[in-house]
């Protein structure tokens, strides 16, 4: 099975945050109480109520011009998920057809510190009340009903695309080659290991500290 993949071409992202809101809407997650911390980025971290947040990162590039990078962070749905390392049974499952990595209610039996540190991207979070662990499901419920993930559906610019993994990998290669003409550092982040593949124009660390893993 090759399953599905999501391609996140950050060079086309405008940080409209349609994906962030669509995620909350489909998963019926509440809006949390936030403050502006001197950035557009909000919520400032993932949580049991936030499976996806857009990271805003700015600085100066070599020519002195500002850059402003946007990184819509979510579970990468690894082919060999680190988070499953401490799972003994079906606390964490990988959907055979879609490839989505899904936390079940049984995750409350697992230790969040272990699961979280087993994830190279620091994605898993725990519901403080129920102790169940939560994260992006790749909208597995939608996928199994012939629909694309809610975040991809909401993306206006085509920064997020979804499809069969082989086709996404092809598209990814082509896009990176195209971008390299203008941005020599352009790259896809760990395309062979993850299903949610990010394309960046520059050093992944400039986007988000765990963009390419710890």
């Amino acid at each position: 099975m090759s399953g599905y993949s999501i391609l996140v071409d950050t060079s086309k992202c405008t940080a409209c945050r349609g994906c962030q809101v669509a995620c909350k809407q489909w998963n019926q997650l509440p809006g949390t109480v936030t403050k502006n911390t001197g950035s557009y980025e909000n919520p400032v971290d993932l949580s049991a109520d936030t499976y996806k947040t857009v990271r805003f990162s700015e600085g100066e590039s070599g020519n002195g011009q500002p850059y402003w990078f946007f990184f819509t962070e979510q579970c990468r749905h690894c082919l060999s998920p680190g988070c499953m390392g401490s799972a003994e049974d079906d606390e964490i499952v990988q959907d055979e057809k879609t490839g989505a990595v899904v936390f079940t209610d049984k995750t409350k039996k697992l230790k969040i510190d272990t699961v979280r540190s087993d994830c190279p991207y620091d994605i898993p979070r725990q519901n403080p009340k129920t102790k169940v662990m939560q994260k992006c499901t790749m909208c597995n419920d939608r996928l199994n009903n012939g629909m694309m993930p809610a975040c991809v559906k909401s993306c206006p610019t085509g920064a997020m695309t979804f499809g069969e993994r082989d086709k996404i990998l092809d598209a990814c290669k082509k896009r990176v080659a195209e971008l390299k003409k203008t941005f020599p550092q352009a790259q896809a982040i760990n395309p062979d290991d993850v299903r949610v593949i990010y394309i960046v124009k520059d050093d992944p660390k400039k986007y988000w500290k765990f963009a390419a893993g710890r």
Binding site: R17, V21, K24, V33, T34, K35, N36, N42
Partner: peptide, 13 residues
């Protein structure tokens, strides 16, 4: 009045 939007942009800056 929309919590998801206020969460993303909560305050005048």
């Amino acid at each position: 009045w929309q919590p998801w939007l206020v969460e993303a942009e909560p305050q005048l800056f």
